[in-house]
Design a protein around this nucleic acid. Structure first.
Lengths: 316, 316
DNA sequence: AAACTGTTTTTTCACGATAAAAGACATTAT
DNA sequence: ATAATGTCTTTTATCGTGAAAAAACAGTTT
């Protein structure tokens, strides 16, 4: 039984393409947005820091901006000549990392059904279907394996363990242990810690979102992640902090996949978060524990109901 | 500041070597040991299952055994002609996986001192020094990153976080949470579960080792791992079970590195294990908890004392 | 017919090569 | 003297390629 994809392909390039310049393209697009705000751009190192890329990439960006008449560039002087036009931007899909492309393809197949536990995953086939090299697929699978959804057979194929009820239960069990601990650690943080300011800002964002829930309910996913990461960070334990990557990944795709009653679910969750935030601010361990438990319980419930009840995985 | 190795190299091969046949060589050696026991070898599929390799590899082994006059091979008949001679075996170092070679080199450098937190890790340099391709090093680093000792900067180098006191504390914190839970789950396992038999056998191994501790104290490391893995498995949680890989890895190198009072430490640990085993067999949650806590506390202490107190890592 | 052997195809593993991106060095401007 | 720009070098990301190993297929033997 094989984990057989259907149809896709992303990197439609003929032959020996070595590396896409998506870092440049993405930074270019972000730099375009900067143009609206100023009449002249800062120094190259400063721009690099701002965009999170090296000076080499900054110079490529500036070179192109000069070419397309967006700026006049002479040494330190980088004067903005005109506002960016929509088609100055590189297309969105060209700014994605290969890793992102592979992950999306892989998750689509995994969630699109027909991906039963026990199936084999074929590196070569995946690479061909997505239109990338085998090395990138291999590296993706290795990174992905820490999420506990796939497993490698020595000198052989990968095996899909499946997005099952058991997986969700094991995941949430750890999540609950870690978050309760982190929340307790958070409570014990000194009054002058910057996290209290972060928490206040998050609270305000929650309230703002609650007010416009009817139109902005789909923005909750991102806010949810930032909130829980703030709490987990209070544990000061890299394993706890890193584990949130697993949760974030699962919830990210879960949110994309399960749109049933999204608005209602998010509205409830915002309420729970606000209650949780109040508890944290009270620094009362009992209250924190109760609010945290309550929220985690409903989060688990939401996740569980989104899992299709399918055939059991066979023991290897 | 760079994570600069000293001198090594393992894969002393000239040019375009694609893949070493270590799977074949290792299986061949193991198959030689089988020869002592029987007058004729089983069928190809059966041998494959026994050695954990494919039939293709089995046939390569048989072909060579025929060549070197170890067996007469005609279809189903594989008669042993003579006992294997010491130099029928492939040298040990040729049977190692590339991943093992890289891991050993890397850990040697990491533990050999001079590897301070914050240092950069250079893929190309590591690959050159070890004498392997960059891809293998990359894949190793990706796999290794889950141990929490290194971290990747996007589009750039890896950063060594260092085998510090903080690392050990974070690691043991999780270990203690997970093992206490697992031990409790173990206690709740039904009387007819096969784990009780496993536990009895482990207990006997502990007693045997305790009797000959003077000469066999270095065998404890392996027994320790098997014992703790048995307990962790009772959690029925893949994240808990997988986390033991991190602990096992750290303790494996810790045991190799820190030989101070090895015999005494192991003797104490065996005693704690036996007490822990008794507690488990009593199925008394209070006793189990106490025994587990006691052992984990001394394990943490041992690990902590082995960490050299060095300069603090700089915040990034 | 079930299980084995012989043969062919497919997949994994590991490499070198090359463009993109980062980083280091040298030079120039404030 | 500091901080920028201009230039050159090194490293990372990704591919195609080929041998090792696995897996699939076909033909035999019990």
């Amino acid at each position: 039984m094989r984990f057989k994809p259907a149809a896709a392909s992303a990197g439609m390039n003929g032959s020996g393409m070595s590396k896409s310049n998506n870092v440049y393209k993405d930074a270019y697009n972000r730099c375009l947005r900067l143009l609206d705000e100023t009449r002249s751009l800062p120094s190259e190192p400063e721009l690099g820091a701002l965009l999170g890329v090296s000076r080499t990439t900054v110079r490529s960006i500036l070179a192109r901006m000069e070419e397309t008449g967006l700026i006049a560039w002479n040494k330190r002087a980088k004067t903005v000549l005109r506002d960016p036009h929509p088609d100055d931007f590189f297309p969105e899909e060209e700014t994605d990392t290969l890793a992102e492309i592979i992950e999306r393809s892989f998750m689509r197949r995994l969630l699109a059904g027909g991906a039963e536990a026990g199936m084999q995953i074929n590196e070569l086939e995946l690479a061909r279907e997505i239109g990338v090299g085998t090395t990138s697929v291999r590296e993706f699978l290795i990174r992905f394996s820490r999420f506990g959804l796939i497993e490698k057979r020595r000198n052989s194929h990968w095996v899909l363990k499946g997005f099952t009820r058991a997986f969700a239960l094991e995941l949430t069990e750890i999540r609950e242990i870690f978050e309760l601990r982190s929340a307790a650690a958070f409570t014990a943080l000194p009054r002058d810690s910057p996290v209290w300011g972060d928490l206040d800002r998050l609270e305000e964002e929650h309230r703002a979102l609650a007010r416009e829930i009817a139109t902005r309910f789909n923005e909750f996913s991102e806010l949810d992640e930032r909130f829980h990461r703030l709490i987990h960070r209070a544990s000061h334990n890299r394993f706890i902090v890193d584990f949130y990557d697993v949760i974030a990944m699962i919830f990210h795709y879960h949110y994309q996949w399960n749109k049933a009653q999204e608005r209602e679910r998010n509205e409830v969750a915002i309420g729970e978060h606000l209650f949780y935030i109040e508890a944290l601010k009270s620094r009362d361990l009992g209250k924190v524990d109760a609010a945290c438990r309550k929220h985690l319980k409903s989060a688990r419930q939401t996740l569980l109901t989104s899992i299709p009840e399918s055939r059991q995985p066979q023991k290897s």
